[in-house]
């Protein structure tokens, strides 16, 4: 359920909404895309209700909606024809779009033969026919490998150059970092909103120390707590994370302290905080259940 959302996204802006599963991101995206009706409140797209602004909306749902039985070209032709393009106009437009998303060589293969990244690029193309002013992407990189993710965001970088407004829904901090503004969403509310850098500065995060030990135990957490600025230790699948303003300085001492009590450190690193760390700092919850 959404609670007191007050959100304004400017034309041409790349806005990311980040939060864990069930936080209401997809519901908000579906309302903007006129797929769901709000029980109260209103949404305006260039002054119109979403239902009256459909020709401006390019919506890419979370699921892989392209038909695996059709080729990439057939999937795009289907959308082109639905949008009123026909004959050679549709054919030329589709060929141009296939070239733009780098699928010309695979255009006549069935989508069932595509990789996850190719399929997602195809689906983004279905939302970018001429006239679209707002691109709504719901969790577009879920399930993509790092290479496919990079290629995907290369495509988004190209779109950013146009006047198209991008509204990205994600639970991945690294994806949200690419946006010009990020809203952090939890339990139906936007709990913080700013540029990625400003969010990190505002929430006092300097360094994140990630520690992996051979075995997890309460003793390790207790020792790490002494090195954490706010005395909080985040347990992840692989190990622990703490926040410190002096990451580089305490690193050696962390290893020695754990070594003294017989806990061998298998990996330790200091990194700049991510938006996921900001989210954790604000909510005490992980954006993703598994790191």
């Amino acid at each position: 359920m959404l609670k007191g959302i007050n959100l304004k996204v400017d034309e041409g802006e790349f806005y990311a909404l980040m939060g864990p599963n069930g936080s209401g991101k997809t519901t908000l995206a579906a309302i903007i895309a006129s797929v769901r009706m709000p029980t109260s409140g209103s949404v305006a797209i260039y002054g119109r209700e979403p239902g009256q602004a459909k020709e401006w909306i390019g919506y890419v749902p979370q699921e892989n909606f392209s038909s695996p039985n059709l080729t990439g070209r057939e999937n795009l032709m289907y959308v082109a024809n639905l949008l009123g393009y026909s004959g050679s106009q549709a054919g030329n437009l589709v060929s141009e779009m296939l070239g733009w998303i780098g699928l010309t060589a695979d255009a006549d293969k069935r989508v069932s033969k595509y990789s996850g990244g190719m399929r997602k690029r195809l689906e983004v193309a279905t939302a970018l026919f001429p006239g679209v002013r707002i691109l709504i992407l719901d969790e577009p990189t879920t399930g993509l490998d790092p290479a496919a993710r990079r290629t995907f965001f290369g495509l988004i970088e190209q779109i950013k150059g146009e006047k198209t407004t991008i509204f990205l829904i994600t639970h991945i901090g690294a994806d949200a970092e690419l946006a010009s503004r990020v809203g952090l969403m939890d339990e139906g509310e936007i709990i913080a909103e700013d540029t990625p850098e400003a969010l990190k500065r505002a929430h006092g995060l300097e360094d994140v120390i990630t520690v992996e030990t051979a075995a997890q135990s309460e003793k390790v957490a207790s020792i790490l707590r002494d090195f954490s600025d706010d005395r909080r230790v985040l347990e992840t699948e692989a190990g622990y994370r703490i926040f410190s303003r002096n990451g580089d300085k305490v690193l050696a001492e962390v290893v020695r302290s754990l070594d003294r009590v017989g806990h061998k450190v298998t990996r330790i690193e200091v990194a700049k905080p991510s938006l996921e760390d900001v989210f954790f700092r604000l909510t005490q919850k992980m954006v993703r259940e598994v790191e």
């Binding site: 895309a33 797929v35 919506y59 890419v60 699921e63 909606f65 639905l82 279905t126």
Partner: peptide
Amino acid sequence: SDREHGLLAKLMSMPI
């Protein structure tokens, strides 16, 4: 299948 794979949601967002 179209509903399960999000195509109906996609179609609902389009002027169709």
